[in-house]
Simulated scan of single mutants.
Amino acid sequence: MELLFLGTGAGVPAKLRNVTSIALKLLEERGAVWLFDCGEATQHQILHTSLKPRRIEKIFITHLHGDHIYGLPGLLGSRSFQGGESRLTVYGPKGIKEYIHVSLSVSRTHLLYPLEVIEIEEGTVFEDEGFFVEAKELDHALPTFGYRVVEKDKPGVLQVDQLKERGIQPGPVYRQLKLGESVKLEDGTELNGEDFLGHSIPGRVVTILGDTRVCSSAVDLGRSADVLIHEATFNRDQEEMAREYFHSTTKQAAETASDAGAKLLFLTHISSRYAKESWEELEREARDVFPDTYIARDFMEYVIPLKK
């Protein structure tokens, strides 16, 4: 489970920060990549990484401002040209279906893979045996969502030593016990798989927010998250401007992380008004409130460690 920041800027592309896109690499967990937002030139950013567009399984759009969606039609088309054949699902606010349909239709782009577009509301927008994704509406100038990605707890490790002490050798029985099933041996002994499993392994939580003012939904989504990714368009002295433009400051992002009890905070969606020389200061502003803060940079990667 790894994060790859493809674009960390706000509004318009800049030389050192492209507009918003974040990849959540789930290659070990499900052999796939999930993308969050797809600003202009996201596919160009991907060219500088090892990420393969055909691996992209899901795209979660936070809102329909251009710096979050203008790269989407191009990426969808290129994925087809580059051998993508597996289903891709796009989630986003009302209007995302029309935007994609019109873009592909007018440009006569024909996809060689099944595309599903789901217009979401608050609540669980995806769930399977390994993950679920919850969405809540934030406070922005148009409908905007934040996403909470939850990895479900994994079963504990099979206690092989205990089985061998009882004379039970590796084989199909081990597989059944690892699944927590009950097994009857040839001598009539019955074993309960749960008796031979260690403690379950807690899943990880990643919260990725769209553009937003300070709001309770952001805190709810970030509750006890292993990683919270929060926009910080302005520095701490620009609270009035942040409110006027429906954004947040570095200090406000840090306060949200603190209120949520998150473990780690990444600041993103940095305004181009802040030159590279200012980035460390922006990071320090947030760290005064929430010490475990890092300002994201394009192509930064972070491996989310397994819990014990």
Rank of each mutant, 00 (worst) to 15 (best):
F60I: 03
F60V: 02
F60L: 13
T62F: 01
T62G: 04
T62R: 03
H63Q: 13
H63S: 14
L64M: 14
L64Q: 10
L64R: 10
H65V: 13
H65E: 15
H65N: 13
G66Q: 11
D67W: 13
D67V: 08
H68F: 11
H68S: 11
H68I: 08
H68Q: 13
H68K: 11
I69D: 05
I69R: 04
Y70M: 12
G71P: 03
G71W: 04
G71A: 01
G71M: 03
G71F: 01
L72K: 03
L72F: 04
L72C: 07
P73G: 14
P73S: 14
P73I: 14
P73Y: 13
G74Q: 06
L75P: 02
L75F: 13
L75V: 09
G77E: 15
G77S: 14
G77A: 15
G77D: 14
G77V: 12
S78F: 12
S78C: 08
S78D: 12
R79W: 04
R79L: 05
R79F: 06
S80T: 15
S80Q: 08
Q82K: 07
G83T: 03
G83P: 01
E85N: 09
E85G: 06
S86C: 05
S86F: 01
R87H: 12
R87P: 09
R87Q: 15
L88Y: 01
L88D: 00
T89M: 07
T89G: 08
T89N: 07
V90C: 05
V90P: 02
V90K: 00
V90M: 04
Y91A: 02
Y91V: 00
P93K: 01
K94Y: 10
K94R: 15
K94H: 13
K94P: 04
G95S: 07
I96M: 03
I96W: 05
I96N: 02
I96A: 00
I96T: 07
I96H: 06
